[in-house]
Design a protein around this nucleic acid. Structure first.
Length: 482
RNA sequence: CGGGACGUGGCGCAGCCUGGUAGCGCACCGGCUUUGGGAGCCGGGGGCCGAGAGUUCAAAUCUCUCCGUCCCGACCA
């Protein structure tokens, strides 16, 4: 069946959104407002996540959570309030976080004896309890995760990408050996994060490690997933840290080994946040709005009643179709608000990025047909009504794959291999540049920083995750970043 | 925190220079006509002009301070 592309009317109206090519940050801001994703909160840098976006976040949580559990970690919950003294126990950690801490000094109408920090991350509290819970090598590995909000007083905020308060998942683990900790941190990055991002978010990500200067405060190695947005900038989507024995020593997380000797643990921590929402928006969205990958969409299909007859028979057919789709496992909703013009509703659903729109009008019903529109390509095709339910799941998978392929093509096409920092500066103006890390060096990183470029991650020559952060022959991926 | 731009109904803006206490488009409400890509007509509702101080008979408009937003940096998931 031939698909027909939606054509613009002869006298095109004003665009729904500022085109991405004209002003990408403005497009981002507009799509967030118009697709009803989020509002700014009353306190600087905070956000209100609206139901349409929260449904997507819940899907993200479900998928990430399932993978975390598959990796053996269990969920728990630790308090929002942390004694200030805890933060101070790990030198690099305090230094890294103190500028962005929110601290409670008055509570219950009294000045507190010891200020309470609102968690910027929970390494410290969790470390304290791990120390209590780990006594023997038989208690290891201890694999914990929590879903929580955290607060970091950022200088510059952007909805979803960097807010003062955000939602995330933070995993914290303790291991008997460095190797075990290392392997677990790697496993999380690969089997939980990268797998989730590519399969569910349809976002190709680079897996690599951070340079010394980009490393997490207190970590000995930071693994990361980096994605490319539609404007060519990088977004760090998830991180997994090897904390060495820094926190274990600071919090005395130790155990007796099978020889009866006291040993210090090796810990890791890892997280993904509501930032992924921003990544999804900027990776897939186009000038007509969002394009939400079906697998994480709260709504995958909308059945749109174009207009009804006096008996309400079109709505009736739409309702039955939706029920059948629901039974087939499709997340579907019906838009039978025929008091709003058809074109308006079509445009609104495109803004919200619902993958498939099934348009039903009296003509369709009479002819036993439905008009099916793919959001990714904005192409229409006509299907027999009886075929729709059977065809939809496959169509959703096709769209999921098409979004990934499109993003991957862009990533590959916008990445160029160079040999010098000067060339990298030119190439990274429009995408990523790759070059030998040995040829960058400390001086090179400084030079790149002057033009707002950073080494996003280091990879092996074949694009893998380096086993050794100080190893030789590493490739630096350079780009502008959010 | 530095440099730039900007805060006027829900959203986008005009008015400010040349003070005289608000206007437009979209959205919203009601009615009628419509409905296969952002509806039309008629009639409505909603804003102490970001906040505070000052100048003035009079401030959205002039002055200062603060707060917030966006862009570019420094810092970060």
């Amino acid at each position: 069946m031939p698909a027909v592309l939606i054509t613009s009317p002869p006298m095109a109206k004003a665009p729904v959104l500022t085109p991405q090519s004209e002003d990408f940050p403005r497009w981002y801001q507009e799509v967030i407002t118009k697709a009803e994703l989020a509002d700014n909160g009353p306190v600087r840098g905070t956000m209100v996540i609206r139901p349409y976006a929260y449904a997507i976040w819940e899907r993200m949580q479900a998928e990430v959570d399932a993978r975390i559990k598959a990796a053996g970690a269990d969920n728990a919950y630790f308090p929002l309030f942390i004694p200030e003294s805890y933060l101070k126990r790990e030198a690099d950690h305090v230094e890294g976080f103190s500028p962005e801490l929110a601290v409670v000094t008055v509570a219950g109408g009294k000045e507190l004896e010891e200020p309470i920090v609102i968690r910027p991350t929970s390494e410290t509290v969790i470390g304290e309890f791990m120390a209590k819970w780990v006594q023997s090598y038989r208690d290891l590995p201890l694999l914990l995760n929590q879903w929580a909000n955290v607060v970091r007083w950022e200088m510059r905020t952007r909805v979803f990408l960097r807010t003062s308060e955000f939602l995330w998942q933070e995993g914290h683990t303790a291991h008997a050996s460095q190797l075990d900790a290392h392997e677990y941190a790697m496993r999380i990055l690969r089997d939980v994060y990268a797998d989730f991002m590519e399969r569910e978010l349809a976002m190709p990500v680079l897996r690599g490690i951070k340079t010394r200067r980009e490393r997490f405060a207190g970590a000995i190695n930071t693994l990361a997933c980096e994605a490319m947005m539609r404007d060519g900038k990088a977004l760090q989507m998830g991180t997994s840290h090897e904390l060495g024995q820094n926190f274990a020593r600071a919090f005395d997380i130790s155990y007796l080994d099978d020889q009866g000797a006291q040993q210090t643990c090796w810990t890791t921590s890892w997280g993904v946040s509501t930032r992924m929402m921003g990544g999804m928006i900027m990776c897939h969205g186009d000038d007509a709005g969002l394009r939400v990958p079906p697998r994480i969409a709260g709504t995958q299909v909308v059945v749109l009643v174009v207009r009804d007859d006096e008996n309400g028979s079109v709505s009736a057919v739409a309702g039955r179709l939706a029920a059948e789709l629901r039974d087939a496992g499709v997340r579907v909703r019906v838009d039978a608000d025929t008091s709003t013009a058809f074109g308006r509703r079509a445009t609104d659903w495109e803004l919200k990025g619902v993958a498939v729109r099934i348009e039903l009008g009296p003509r369709d019903v009479e002819g036993g047909e439905a008009t099916v529109v793919r959001r990714d390509q904005r192409a229409k095709l006509t299907l027999a009504l009886g075929e729709v339910v059977a065809r939809t799941p496959g169509l959703l998978e096709e769209i999921q794959r098409a979004l990934f392929d499109e993003a991957e093509t862009r990533l590959v096409d916008s990445t160029s291999a160079v040999t010098s920092v000067a060339e990298a500066k030119e190439a990274a103006a429009v995408g990523f540049a790759t070059m030998p890390f040995d040829a960058v060096g400390e001086a090179g990183e400084d030079e790149l920083a002057e033009v707002a470029l950073t080494v996003r991650c280091l990879q092996t020559a074949d694009g893998g995750i380096p086993e050794d952060p100080d190893g030789e022959g590493l490739v630096a991926v350079i780009g502008r970043a959010y």
